[in-house]
Design a protein around this nucleic acid. Structure first.
Length: 191
DNA sequence: GCCAGGATCGTCT
DNA sequence: GACGATCCTGGCG
């Protein structure tokens, strides 16, 4: 992929462990709002912390489907969390989008968030800022209202560091969290 | 500034 | 009937 290209489904049609770190630096846009992805986490079917670990159910259906779609679910009965489905159909895996650096539509984000800062520095926060709800579960990330672009100049070379995932109780030791080194928008404990 | 606790609801046992 | 891939508020020092 080259700078500014739209990410097609083929980008996601491979190991989630390749996709997750490469998503850092990409631009995610929804409607008029957009942000650069600065933090992700990988989940695959062999992983006890993955929703698909226990097998296919009505909720995690989308995880088993074709790559390049959005998997949105409700966390703690309060927050919608956004994932990008990876790996071929039948193989359940996804990348959790944990944090963005806002680059467009800041006013709209502030409006939706009801605050001036901390707009997208957390998985539940960015979905609220961008207006992502459960109704987008299963929709393609390469078609409206979504748009996903390869890193612009200057972002392609950002250093990505790996560390332990956050907010889970199973398989905590797996270093499957990726974030842009030193980025101030990364959520919670920095690496 | 830090930490503990509560909100809130769909999904699975 | 319990449990989260979380966030925010309030209380205390």
């Amino acid at each position: 992929m080259s700078a500014g290209d739209r990410l097609e489904a083929a980008f996601f049609d491979r190991s989630v462990h390749e996709v997750a770190p490469e998503l850092v630096g990409c631009t995610l846009a929804i409607g008029d709002c957009a942000g650069v992805i600065v933090e992700t986490e990988a989940y695959d079917a062999t992983d006890p912390a993955c929703h698909a670990f226990g097998g296919r159910t009505a909720r995690n259906e989308v995880l088993f489907g074709p790559p390049g779609r959005a998997y949105v679910y409700l966390s703690y009965g309060v927050h919608s969390l956004l994932n990008a489905v990876a790996e071929p159909e039948g193989s359940a895996a996804a990348v959790l989008i944990r944090a963005l650096e806002p680059v467009a539509g800041l006013e709209r984000m502030r409006e939706r968030r009801g605050r001036e800062d901390e707009l997208c520095s957390g998985p539940g926060r960015l979905t609220e800022a961008l207006g992502v709800g459960l109704e987008l579960n299963g929709s393609g990330l390469d078609s409206p209202p979504f748009e996903l672009l390869a890193p612009e100049r200057g972002w392609g070379s950002v250093e990505v560091v790996a560390g332990p995932r956050i907010g889970i109780t199973k398989a905590v030791e797996l270093p499957w969290r990726y974030c842009a080194a030193g980025d101030p928008h990364v959520s919670r404990p920095r690496l």
